[in-house]
């Protein structure tokens, strides 16, 4: 019996593929896509303003009306995207020399050490890292203590730039690693060829190395950008500033699911656009 089934499947590769994938596809379909659809559907459902109860299938565009009618939602979106872009650019600027050092300059021993150092923060809990930064940034924290002799006060925990700093710190490894891998992929002979043809260090970097790193940078930026765009703990803990995620969290936790769901469309749309942009840069060949 079993051998008959086996024979039936081996003669029908598509059927066996389907049978193999049916379980994971069902999982993704119902749990992942399904919950996303339910979430987004909330954006179109009405809510009782007193009890906070959502009325499913009572269709309305009120939530979108609220978001479009209040400029604060646009301001928050622009602030979040701005910080995410800034974090991505900063991470790229820091990652390039670091990755270059690891890939091209460091001896194998040092390379292993630096790679461990770069990835080490990834082993620590996200919250531990954020709280560590809080102790650095708070008024009587490490940074305040360092700059006190200069007559400057520590930044405290309200500055928006704290978010930029901490998010850059958090996501930097996600930029360094693909850039490092991208550099590793560039054959040494290409750099020699450039030097051979008269290109000095900077010209070689600009004309030969950098263009070939664009896919790697785009791949890294998907991480830094999307993780920054979606973060709501860092801005809350070190900045006291609201990001898109905070508005969604606040509204979902505090009783206005339709607004949270409607606002969720925004980061989804931004990420879609960003992924399309990154794909054009060849990011997905570099992941």
């Amino acid at each position: 019996m079993i051998s008959r089934i086996a024979r039936w499947f081996s003669a029908r590769p598509r059927a066996s593929l389907g049978a193999l994938l049916s379980a994971p596809l069902t999982w993704i379909g119902t749990v992942y896509i399904g919950s996303l659809v339910v979430l987004l559907a909330h954006a179109f459902w009405s809510k009782d303003s007193f009890t906070g109860k959502v009325a499913p299938f009572d269709w309305t565009l009120d939530a979108f009306g609220q978001i479009l009618g209040n400029p604060v939602y646009l301001a928050i979106a622009l602030r979040t995207i701005g910080i995410a872009v800034l974090v991505t650019l900063t991470a790229a600027i820091i990652a390039l020399p670091v990755a270059y050092y690891i890939a091209r300059i460091a001896s194998p021993r040092v390379r292993a050490l630096v790679l461990v150092a770069v990835t080490m923060p990834l082993w620590a809990s996200y919250l531990v890292k954020v709280y560590a930064w809080r102790t650095i940034l708070q008024a009587n924290g490490l940074l305040g203590w360092l700059v006190a002799p200069l007559g400057i006060e520590g930044p405290g925990l309200t500055e928006i730039w704290n978010s930029w700093l901490v998010l850059t710190y958090l996501w930097l490894p996600y930029m360094i690693l693909p850039v490092y891998a991208g550099l590793e992929r560039i054959p040494t002979s290409l750099l020699e060829a450039s030097a051979d043809l008269g290109g000095r260090g900077w010209v070689t970097f600009r004309r030969v190395i950098f263009p070939q790193l664009i896919p790697a940078l785009a791949a890294g930026s998907i991480f830094t950008f999307s993780l920054s765009l979606g973060d709501y703990i860092v801005p809350d803990l070190v900045s006291d500033a609201k990001f898109i995620g905070n508005v969604i969290y606040d509204n979902s936790a505090l009783g206005s699911l339709p607004v949270a769901a409607a606002y969720s469309f925004l980061p989804i749309a931004v990420m879609m656009a960003y992924l399309l942009f990154a794909r054009r840069l060849g990011a997905f060949e570099s992941l």
Partner: peptide, 30 residues
């Protein structure tokens, strides 16, 4: 907060819970 102001006067209307939440979002978001 209730739209009917939690009183017996049908003429008065007050800001609702949703208005309060949104106003808070606006205050905190700017």
């Amino acid at each position: 907060p209730r739209e009917d102001c939690d009183d017996d006067d049908a003429a008065t209307t007050c800001k609702t819970q949703d208005d309060w939440v949104e106003a808070w979002t606006t205050l905190r978001g700017n």
